[in-house]
Amino acid sequence: MTRTRLRTTLATATALTLGLAACSGGDAGAERLENGDLPTVSIGIHSGWDEGIAVSHLFAAVLEDSGYEVETQEADPGIVYTGLASGDYDVNFDMWLPATHADYLEEYGEDLEQLGVWYDDATLTVAVNEDAPITSLDELADNADAFDGRIIGIEAGAGLTRIVQDEAVPEYGLEDMELVVSSTPAMLAELDAATSAGEDVVVTLWRPHWAYDAYPIRDLEDPAGVMGDAEEIHSVGRTGFAEDYPSLSAMVADFTLTDEQLFSLENLMFNEDGGSDPAGSARTWLEQNPDVAEQMEQAAGL
């Protein structure tokens, strides 16, 4: 799904009436698992952010198999961070830093605990089929005919679209190419059709995304750096999280996924399974990748 990288309004935050049983508030006298953790944990998930949905359900599956009771709740990012700061959620696995979620960190940082970085190459990109005749954005203008003079984009309001229009096009002299502003599904449909037909295509995209697992594509180099620096994806907890979940905190701190692992997980969940059953998709992927669950459990001493 497309995600406009604009700060979500918090006007709807008053709708936060979650009543999640996992909100412990740091109760030192609460019943705990043998590993020292509270037995229930609530995961706040950003609606529409595929990587966060995927990793959240991955954690949920591993934790449930280890005896935890797990609650998952999707909401707009602003509501998730409000809920974390107030203790209605325990953890979120999708804080993009240093730029995308900087405002939320500034507003709520004193009421949050940074738990670790699990992905460090979150980027906005322009991608082509892997056998395209160019490797860099600075070659695109001279080879526009190979791509029918078109760059296939996504929604008009997306931050990615703005950066390509305002930064990449003038920097690389792409004014004579048509930036097709459409939708993410339309872009993916063109990408699918072109790669299936063995044709050259250039699209606006971002990492992480399941398209990198589903299609033979690669990013164009960006020598001028106009697409922006890579961001990190952090896990973040409510105040007192590490005290209430010492073993889970160790699991979160140790957790990482490679590009290949993340892209294949997203591809299974959102492309092959159509996003209809994220929990089931996560379990299917773990069956295919048992080493991931084993590493997570070992990190927590489970």
Rank of each mutant, 00 (worst) to 15 (best):
T2L: 08
R3I: 15
T9W: 01
T12V: 12
T12I: 06
A15K: 13
L16D: 14
T17W: 02
L18H: 11
C23E: 14
G26T: 06
G29R: 14
A30M: 10
R32V: 07
E34Y: 00
N35A: 05
I43H: 07
G44N: 06
D50M: 12
E51A: 15
E51I: 02
I53Q: 05
A54D: 09
V55Q: 05
S56Q: 03
H57Q: 01
H57L: 07
H57W: 10
V62C: 12
L63H: 04
S66V: 05
G67D: 08
Y68T: 04
Q73A: 13
P77D: 11
P77V: 06
Y81F: 15
T82G: 06
T82E: 15
T82M: 11
G83C: 04
L84Y: 00
A85N: 03
S86A: 14
V91E: 04
L97A: 11
T100Y: 11
Y108C: 02
E110H: 13
L112G: 00
D120Y: 05
D120H: 07
T123Q: 14
T125K: 13
V126P: 03
A127L: 06
V128S: 05
A132N: 07
P133G: 06
P133W: 08
S136A: 14
D138T: 10
E139G: 10
A141T: 04
D142K: 09
A144R: 12
D145W: 05
A146S: 15
A146I: 00
D148K: 09
G153I: 04
L160K: 13
R162C: 03
Q165D: 11
D166S: 13
D166Y: 08
A168T: 12
V169A: 04
G173M: 09
G173C: 07
E175Y: 07
E178I: 12
V181T: 14
A189L: 11
A189R: 14
L191Q: 06
D192P: 00
A194H: 02
A194N: 07
A194M: 05
T195W: 01
T195Q: 08
S196N: 11
D200W: 00
T204D: 02
L205M: 13
L205T: 13
H209L: 08
Y212M: 07
A214Y: 08
L220K: 02
A224Y: 01
G225W: 06
M227Q: 11
A230S: 15
E231R: 05
E231L: 12
E232C: 07
I233P: 02
H234W: 15
S235W: 02
F241R: 04
D244K: 00
D244L: 00
P246V: 11
L248I: 12
S249G: 14
A253N: 10
L257Y: 03
L257F: 11
L257H: 01
Q261M: 02
M269F: 09
F270V: 01
E272V: 15
D273Y: 07
G274L: 11
A279Q: 10
A279F: 09
G280W: 08
G280D: 03
T284Q: 14
T284W: 00
T284L: 04
W285T: 00
L286S: 02
L286A: 05
P290F: 08
P290Q: 05
A293T: 09
Q295L: 09
Q295E: 15
A299M: 07
G301Q: 12
G301N: 10
